[in-house]
Simulated scan of single mutants.
Amino acid sequence: MSADTFHPSRRAFLQGRFPRGERGHEAGNDELHISSLLVQHRPQAMPALEAYVDTQPALEITARGEHRCVLLCETGHQREVLDLIDAMLALPGVVNVSLIYHHAEPRDELEQPLQPPPGAEA
């Protein structure tokens, strides 16, 4: 690809999103990545963690404990999940962030109505 036709945005470049043919990614990749994260932290870290989560539309605290919490993470790219994990690990008092579930699926498939299995009553 010539330098004249390849001009990714800075954000696309940093997130590794390139047009088809560049690094194996497809242009216009429209996936939804759903992840669960287990965050282990010191009790005094919870206010900073809550404040960080409030600034991130992709994150939601779904369960809380004195030393840990579970977060739901919905992003458009796998790299975004890793960036959020790295940012939480940098918060004072956060001991560990573990990815405990990850699922990716094209958004258009998620928006399709569910069909009952053959033979099931409606």
Rank of each mutant, 00 (worst) to 15 (best):
M1K: 10
S2N: 00
T5L: 09
F6Y: 07
F6E: 02
H7I: 04
S9P: 02
R10N: 01
R10C: 02
A12Y: 04
A12W: 07
L14S: 04
L14H: 02
Q15S: 14
R17Q: 03
R17W: 01
P19G: 10
R20F: 07
R20I: 04
G21K: 09
G21F: 06
G21D: 14
E22R: 01
R23L: 13
R23G: 05
H25Q: 12
G28P: 00
E31A: 10
E31I: 13
H33E: 02
H33M: 06
S35H: 01
S36W: 09
L37A: 00
V39W: 11
V39C: 13
H41V: 12
R42F: 01
R42L: 04
R42G: 00
Q44M: 11
Q44T: 05
A45M: 08
M46Y: 05
M46R: 02
P47N: 11
E50G: 09
Y52F: 12
V53M: 11
D54P: 02
D54L: 14
T55H: 03
I61G: 03
I61Y: 07
T62I: 15
T62P: 02
R64N: 13
E66R: 14
E66I: 13
C69W: 00
C69Q: 05
C69T: 06
V70P: 08
V70M: 13
C73D: 05
C73Q: 06
T75M: 05
G76S: 15
G76M: 06
G76E: 05
Q78K: 07
Q78R: 01
E80A: 12
E80L: 09
V81K: 00
V81F: 02
L82K: 04
D83M: 06
I85W: 07
A87D: 08
L89T: 08
A90G: 10
A90I: 13
A90S: 10
L91R: 01
L91Y: 12
P92G: 09
G93D: 13
V94H: 06
V95L: 04
V97E: 14
L99N: 08
I100R: 04
I100V: 15
H102A: 10
H102V: 09
H103M: 05
H103V: 07
H103N: 07
A104D: 11
E105M: 13
E105T: 13
R107W: 04
R107F: 03
E109V: 07
L110H: 11
Q112L: 10
L114D: 07
G119Y: 07
G119L: 14
G119R: 10
A120H: 14
E121L: 06
A122E: 12
A122W: 10
